[in-house]
Simulated scan of single mutants.
Amino acid sequence: MKPSYTNFNDLETDLKRLNLERRIAWEEIKLLKTEFKDDLTPYNWIEPIIKKASKYGVFMLVRKMFTKH
């Protein structure tokens, strides 16, 4: 439903508000793009793999210590 404006001040106020909302949305999109690029960096992929491998290695070491040969 389109709003009906009684004067130009209401129209200008609404246009300013809509412009601010558009600029905020644009900044949020830019922030999401940056976060997405950061998530795809190799360091962010390698770090969890190294952590899991080290946990698995410690588990295997402890298991080897407590099992009979």
Rank of each mutant, 00 (worst) to 15 (best):
G57P: 01
K37W: 10
E12N: 07
K16Q: 10
F36P: 00
D14K: 10
L18P: 00
N44K: 02
M1H: 06
E12W: 15
R23F: 12
D14V: 11
N7A: 05
V62A: 06
N19Y: 04
E12K: 11
N9L: 13
Y56R: 04
F59M: 04
T6P: 01
K51I: 00
W45Q: 07
A53N: 04
L20M: 10
I46D: 00
K68F: 15
I49T: 05
R17N: 08
K51V: 00
F59P: 00
N19K: 12
I29H: 08
I29A: 12
E47N: 03
K33G: 10
L31M: 10
F36M: 05
K55N: 08
L32W: 08
P3M: 05
I46C: 00
F59L: 06
I29Y: 09
V58E: 02
A53S: 06
I49Y: 02
E47S: 03
D39T: 07
S4V: 15
I29S: 11
M1L: 10
Y43E: 05
L40N: 04
E27Q: 12
E35L: 15
E27F: 14
K16A: 14
I46M: 02
F8A: 07
T13I: 10
K64P: 00
D10G: 11
E27V: 12
V58T: 09
S54F: 13
F66K: 03
E35P: 01
L31Q: 07
P48E: 01
L40W: 03
K52H: 05
D10P: 01
F8Q: 05
K2H: 11
L40P: 00
E47M: 06
D39P: 00
D39L: 15
I24K: 08
D39M: 14
N9Y: 08
F8K: 06
T34L: 14
I49W: 02
N44Q: 02
S54W: 10
P48Q: 01
R22M: 12
K33E: 11
L11F: 14
N9A: 15
K33S: 11
K33R: 11
F36L: 11
T13S: 08
T6A: 13
S4Q: 09
A53C: 06
K68W: 14
A25H: 05
D10A: 15
N44I: 00
N19H: 08
K55M: 08
D39R: 13
F66S: 02
K33W: 10
F59G: 02
R23M: 12
M65R: 11
A25V: 08
T13G: 06
E21I: 11
W45A: 12
Y5M: 02
K55C: 04
I50G: 00
D39A: 13
T6M: 11
L15R: 07
M65N: 05
A25F: 06
E35T: 12
K51R: 09
R23S: 12
S4Y: 04
L31N: 07
Y56H: 05
S4P: 02
T34C: 06
K37T: 07
I29F: 13
P48N: 01
E28Y: 11
K30T: 07
V62N: 02
K52F: 09
A53E: 03
I29D: 04
M60T: 08
L11C: 05
T67W: 11
K37A: 09
K64Q: 10
K30W: 04
